[in-house]
Design a protein around this nucleic acid. Structure first.
Lengths: 192, 192
DNA sequence: TTAAAAAACTAATGCAAGTAGTTTCACGGC
DNA sequence: GCCGTGAAACTACTTGCATTAGTTTTTTAA
């Protein structure tokens, strides 16, 4: 029982299977044995493609992040007004998380890898998506980093609480979200 | 080798050990075997006090939440101005998370248990801590739920990103945080 | 054509969660 | 003071995951 005839699995296949698995069954379901079963191979064979369980999680998280950034890039294409761009970004993140709860939970759980080769590109792309409209809105350079952190925090916290079903009171989440991003954006533009 | 002489462990002891463990080694370290080792007993004996691993995590999370709420209650004691109360609450949450990163990560990871007997009291206490100053600030009743969600989201997102070391650029986090909560509070008070 | 690398496998170890059944101690009723 | 019941510990065991070592087969490149 050695290598099988025909095309064999790639690391891409493995990450793809992991993405699907996490999408369907949540971040807790991610594991070497589980992904191997999904691919129809034995667990040890997966180590031909990933170094370890944690590394599989990191790779899957990076892939998910790229999916998110691509989605956001599409979302703001064609939006001209900088403020509308910011709102569009926030809403697009929330929509993506609704459609990919497990993946976002995974991204939140995996420790960032500052030295990882895949880290730079998508991180920078995400940053730029927010930086451009902030600049156009006249936010001074030395406050843009703080502004991005504020916006990211607000959206991140909201979508996490929302998908963890921590908003138990009967009130429309849409309204809460619009109120939040409107408050933050207004506050950032007229900062004192 | 049956029961040992002298006083035996209680569920409180177990939760206490779990709290200490998570504080020192993070939420990932929490498990039946690990807590049992910490207490000097064999893993199966722990099931005399908790029903399962997940239930241990839930109990620990509830205990952590109570610690947080108690800390916040102390923090706002003696603060009169409602706006200052809100700011104090936000800063106290952040300070607590800095001192208890693992516990906060655990709370974020454990699914909420709407029917759990321990759930109501602390949830309500936390809610009330925010509700009172919002009322005093003149936020209309039908917007208070949204306002609380917005504030919680902002603080939650910020502290999670911060303790996950996702703020990689060299800029003072204190400034970012103050900017965020100021923007949100201002936005909530002058909501349109 | 052939040697090396890649990709699968089997076998086995170690550890965590959980179950079943056993032993020993503490405590309340007599 | 004695005794029975239940609580709290134990041992032994099963199952499942992560991981390592070593083997076989196929692909690929020299």
């Amino acid at each position: 029982m050695g290598r099988r005839k025909g095309p064999s699995l790639t690391r891409e296949d493995v990450v793809q299977a992991a993405l699907t698995l996490v999408r369907l069954e949540g971040a807790d379901a991610l594991g070497v044995a589980r992904v191997a079963r999904e691919l129809g191979i034995r667990p040890p064979s997966l180590y031909n493609h990933v170094a370890s369980g944690p590394e599989l999680a990191v790779a899957t998280s990076f892939a998910a992040q790229r999916l998110l950034v691509d989605d956001l890039t599409d979302a703001v294409r064609g939006v001209d007004d900088p403020r509308a761009q910011l709102e569009t970004l926030c809403r697009a993140i929330r929509r993506w998380v609704h459609a990919n709860e497990g993946l976002y939970a995974l991204m939140a759980r995996v420790e960032p890898q500052p030295d990882h080769p895949d880290a730079g590109a998508t991180d920078r792309a995400l940053l730029d998506l927010f930086l451009r409209p902030l600049g156009q809105l006249g936010v001074p350079v030395d406050r843009r980093v703080h502004a991005i952190r504020a916006l990211r925090s607000a959206v991140h916290g909201f979508v996490l609480l929302e998908s963890a079903r921590q908003f138990q009171l009967a009130a429309d989440s849409e309204v809460s979200f619009e109120l939040l991003i409107d408050a933050v954006i207004r506050g950032l533009v007229n900062a004192g």
